[in-house]
């Protein structure tokens, strides 16, 4: 009887703990909604990432080894065919390289003529993807590079094939990358010719949707989709994937980065372009800058006038010299004839 009451009280206690734990978990879920998430939760995530990155790196090392063994074996059998294909590809790529180099020079020349600032191409930061959280609830990755190596929130992350996502949480030695396929991912994209612009929206499937495609645009299957740079959050022109028709009039994007395991990634440092409202130039600064610009223009005008005057003076002097020399020559000729 005593044992039975103890059993009952124990069972009641366990039920109470379950209820408490469920309430606590629900509260955390409500707090962690993207719109109303307190920054402390992001800090906790970043710290956990820092702490977990070395452990995850150690855990994923054998998996990476396994992949390289299997990959190595299959590569070995396909080496001869691959070699032949690569040679052909190199020959084709050499032509493309020449074209690219000539176009680069041309673009640089145009940029300097039109005074257009070029895109700052900072060195990419290489990192290993150490944790892969591509489950039904979230599509994210943990990479082993963080603030200390220059990674910042919002930076785009690419594999050798194309864009995989952007950094959402940064720790000292690690960062969390939200993949393009995640439910919360929204990236402005366009076709390579810039005619069709849309929003690439993740829905936890392997091919994200294209939403808000502009009405007049005509999309074609397999058309290259790149980042549009709209909103200034991502640079323009990063390769994303190819357009693929879905049911109805909908379009999806077959990502370049999908299919292969994402292992080594590159973070591209990029300073987002701030909107004027977020970073307004103070009135005093604007006045100073305007005065400086006027002063520079005045100085340039004066310098130009001075240069023109000096050129005129030089020309007059040369003319005078020429006339003197001409008179001397004529006199000499006359003297010669007289003699």
């Amino acid at each position: 009887m005593v044992e039975s009451s103890e059993w009952r009280s124990r069972r009641g206690w366990t039920t109470a703990v379950y209820a408490l734990v469920a309430v606590a978990a629900l509260l955390l879920l409500v707090l962690d909604r993207p719109g109303s998430r307190p920054s402390v939760l992001d800090d906790i995530r970043a710290h956990t990432g820092d702490w977990a990155a070395p452990v995850m790196s150690a855990v994923s090392a054998p998996i990476r080894g396994l992949r390289s063994i299997f990959g190595g074996a299959s590569d070995y059998w396909a080496a001869v065919d691959e070699n032949r294909e690569l040679r052909q590809e190199i020959a084709q790529l050499n032509q493309w390289r020449d074209l690219a180099l000539s176009l680069r020079d041309k673009v640089r020349a145009y940029e300097s003529i039109l005074d257009i600032p070029g895109v700052d191409a900072a060195d990419p930061i290489g990192a290993w993807s150490v944790a892969d959280a591509s489950g039904p609830f979230v599509h994210a990755r943990l990479i082993d590079a963080g603030w200390d190596r220059g990674v910042r929130e919002g930076h785009p992350v690419l594999t050798e094939r194309g864009l995989v996502g952007r950094v959402v949480v940064v720790g000292h030695n690690s960062a969390r990358v939200l993949l393009l396929t995640d439910l919360n991912s929204r990236i402005p994209v366009m076709t390579e010719d810039g005619e069709a612009r849309a929003l690439l929206t993740g829905d936890n499937s392997s091919a994200p949707r294209l939403e808000f495609v502009n009405r007049d645009a005509v999309l074609e299957e397999d058309e290259r989709i790149v980042t549009s740079g709209d909103g200034g959050l991502l640079p323009r022109g990063l390769p994303v994937g190819q357009a693929a028709p879905a049911s109805g009039d909908a379009w999806r994007v077959r990502l370049y980065s999908s299919g292969d395991p994402v292992d080594m990634v590159w973070v591209y440092p990029y300073d987002p372009i701030m909107t004027p409202e977020e970073n307004p130039v103070p009135q005093s600064e604007r006045l100073i800058e305007s005065a400086e610009r006027e002063a520079r223009a005045e100085a340039a005008r004066l310098a130009g006038e001075a240069a023109a005057e000096s050129v005129e003076a030089e020309a007059a002097a040369e003319e005078e010299q020429g006339e003197t020399a001409g008179t001397g020559a004529a006199n000499a000729q006359q003297a010669g004839q007289g003699g």
Binding site: V17, A24, A25, A133, A140, V169
Partner: peptide, 24 residues
């Protein structure tokens, strides 16, 4: 239950999912 909750919380933090989901 507290150990399950803690394990779920750790899973949530490592995977970057909504905090509390795996815990629950």
């Amino acid at each position: 239950p507290l150990l399950c909750f803690g394990a779920g919380l750790l899973a949530d933090l490592i995977t970057g999912g909504p905090i509390g989901l795996w815990a629950l």
